[in-house]
Write a protein that binds this DNA or RNA. Structure first.
Ligand code: MN
Ligand code: MN
Ligand code: ZN
Ligand code: ZN
Lengths: 137, 137
DNA sequence: GATAAAATGCAATGCAGTTGCACATGCTTA
DNA sequence: TAAGCATGTGCAACTGCATTGCATTTTATC
């Protein structure tokens, strides 16, 4: 329902333009994280920069989080519902499959407590595993 | 002692050219990981590409490991002695300090066992923490 | 509908990484 | 030692991805 997507965006302070609704709809349907290139490939008629800025806006407003999976391109995935303050949104593991080259959020695998050396003050944690995903193993 | 550095390189199957010895010496003196740009800045007269290929060769031969710390540029740091098979060389935490912008290997903080969902087969793990290092906190 | 704010499209730029190729240097071995 | 081959180096050019400027269009508000 487009109405729902509209209110989703409005609730986060994002003007629900046509392009943004399409991108949000697309994101909702993905099981893997999405790169700008993925969007370009899917929305052939759309302008690359608009897609870029759409992702950026979504990230700023906390509806997606950025994933650096060690490949050359940044990925994005929708934040889980629980992610309000958006400070610890991506405090979960990301898995990059070397076979199908998809990147997955694995929110069920929480990042364990870390014992840092004295005086190191953590602010952000990123845990990325490469390997074979459940489809490819 | 240059002789020592030479044998170090030879032992890993790397021809000890002048540039390589200088780079190795430089790496040995660093406490933080090093980017290509760092090398360029330090070795003003050296050719960028030669430095690039030096790092690449060092990585291939297992004397440095690559660190993707979430910044725009890849860093390199010497592998610990223990790193023979070089498969699990960088199985330790990397810390990027948002203040001094240095990246540190924290080999004492081992990466904990992870409970991945069924059928996910890990091959490589990268754990990066951003925050304030011991000098800056 | 007039107005201001925000989004879009196109072009251009920046930057890190990478490659090709000609030349230089070092190693091998006859 | 000299020739011949393998490897390293320097310069130029190119790639991919991210990012910005600016004129135009669309949207929200009055
Ligand atoms: Mn995620
Ligand atoms: Mn390290
Ligand atoms: Zn896969
Ligand atoms: Zn610091």
């Amino acid at each position: 329902m487009v109405k729902e997507l509209e209110t989703d965006l409005l609730a986060k302070g994002i003007r629900p333009t046509a392009m943004r609704l399409l991108v949000l709809d697309y994101l909702l349907k993905q099981s893997a994280a999405v790169s700008l290139n993925d969007l370009e490939t899917y929305f052939l008629k759309a302008d690359r920069i608009t897609l870029y800025r759409t992702l950026k806006k979504f990230e700023d407003k906390g509806i997606v989080h950025k994933i650096e999976d060690g490949t050359s391109s940044v990925k994005y995935a929708l934040c889980p519902e629980s992610c309000y303050g958006m400070a610890y949104c991506d405090l979960h593991l990301h898995f990059y499959c070397t076979q199908c080259q998809n990147t997955f959020c694995l929110p069920k695998t929480r990042i364990p407590e870390l014992q840092l050396p004295e005086n190191y003050q953590p602010e952000e944690i990123s845990l990325t595993v490469k390997g074979k995903c459940s489809n490819c193993s």
